[in-house]
C-alpha cells in the first residue's frame, strides 16, 4: 500500500481578534487512515475541524485536500469535494424524519430538476427511489430501522448521534470528520459507536479524523494520534508512542 496523504495541514494559524486559537499546526491524514485528535478542553480541536470545513478562515497556512487548497472555498463546496462531518453539539434536523435527515445527506448526489419536478413527479420519482435505496442501506448498517419514520427531535440522544453519523455517510465522503461522536454516552452506546467507526473505516475504507475525549477508546481504535494543547501541536505518533510521551502526560496530568 502506497501511503498517500489525502489531507495535508500545512502550518495553520488561526486567531480571533488577537487571541491565538491555533498556531503552526501541521499534520497529514493518510488515505485509509484513522487519525485521532486529542487534547484538553479548549485546545482547539473543534476549531481545527471548522477550518477544514470552511467555517473558520485561518490567517496563515494551507489545507490541501486531494491536492486542492480548501482555505478559500465556501463550505458547501468543500462538502462536495467529499468531506463529511458530524458536530460536537448534535446538528440533526430535529423537525424532519430519520429518512429525510439521511436523504438530505444525498443532496448533491440527487439529480432533480425543480421545474420539471413541480409539474410531474414521474422522472424525479425514479431518482427518489435510487436515493432511498442507498439510504436504506445506511439505516441497516447503523441499526436504526425502528426509527425510520420518527421525527428526529423525538428520538433519544444516542440514536440522534447515529442519525447524524448516517447523514454524513450518506454523502459518500472521501474523508469523515467526527467531533466527539461518543460525548455524553454510556459505555454500551460508546461501544456501538466505536464499532460503527471501525466498520466505516475498515469496510468502507473511508479515512477518518476523530476527536474524542475517552482515552481508552482512542488508544484502541486510532492508528495515529495528534495531541493539541492551547492551540499548539505537542505530539504526534501511534498510540504506543503517545502513551509514553512525557509532554502528553504532563499536559493531561498537569505539573
Amino acid at each position: 500500500m502506497v501511503e498517500e496523504p489525502i489531507l495535508e495541514i500545512r502550518s495553520l494559524h488561526l486567531s480571533f481578534g488577537g487571541i491565538k486559537c491555533l498556531s503552526d499546526i501541521s499534520f497529514d491524514v493518510f488515505d485509509k487512515g484513522l487519525l485521532a485528535i486529542i487534547g484538553p478542553n479548549g485546545a482547539g480541536k473543534t476549531a481545527m475541524l471548522n477550518c477544514i470545513s470552511g467555517f473558520y478562515r485561518p490567517q496563515q497556512g494551507k489545507i490541501l485536500f486531494k491536492g486542492k487548497d480548501l482555505t478559500r472555498l465556501p463550505s458547501h463546496q468543500i462538502a462536495k469535494l467529499g468531506i463529511g462531518r458530524t458536530f460536537q453539539n448534535l446538528a440533526v434536523y430535529a423537525g424532519a424524519s430519520t429518512i429525510d435527515n439521511l436523504l438530505a445527506g444525498r443532496h448533491f448526489h440527487t439529480k432533480e430538476n425543480i421545474f420539471a419536478q413541480a409539474f410531474w413527479f414521474g422522472p424525479a420519482m425514479k431518482e427518489e427511489m435510487k436515493q432511498r435505496l442507498f439510504v436504506e442501506e445506511i439505516i441497516d448498517f447503523l441499526e436504526i430501522e425502528p426509527s425510520r419514520y420518527s421525527i428526529v427531535g423525538s428520538l433519544p440522544y444516542g440514536i440522534r448521534k447515529r442519525i447524524e453519523l448516517g447523514r454524513a455517510l450518506a454523502m459518500e465522503p472521501d474523508l469523515l470528520l467526527l467531533d466527539e461522536p461518543m460525548a455524553g454516552m454510556n459505555l454500551e452506546e460508546k461501544e456501538d459507536i466505536a464499532r460503527f467507526i471501525l466498520d466505516i473505516h475498515e469496510l468502507r475504507k473511508i479515512p477518518i479524523i476523530l476527536i474524542e475525549h475517552d482515552m481508552g477508546m482512542v488508544m484502541d481504535i486510532a492508528q495515529r494520534i495528534v495531541v493539541l494543547d492551547l492551540g499548539k501541536k505537542i505530539a504526534e505518533g501511534d498510540p504506543d508512542q503517545i502513551k509514553s510521551n512525557p509532554t502528553v502526560i504532563k499536559a493531561y496530568l498537569g505539573e
Binding site: S53, G54, F55, P74, S75, H76, Q77, A79, K80, I83, G84, R85, F87, A91, V92, Y93, A94, G95, A96, D100, L103, A104, G105, H107, F108, R167, A168, M171
Partner: peptide
C-alpha cells in the same frame, strides 16, 4: 429537504453541500 435543512440547522446544511 434543502429548505428543511436550512430551517433546522443552516451550518450543518453547509456541510452536506447545500
Amino acid at each position: 429537504r434543502a429548505f428543511i435543512a436550512i430551517r433546522d440547522h443552516d451550518i450543518a446544511a453547509n456541510t452536506l453541500g447545500v
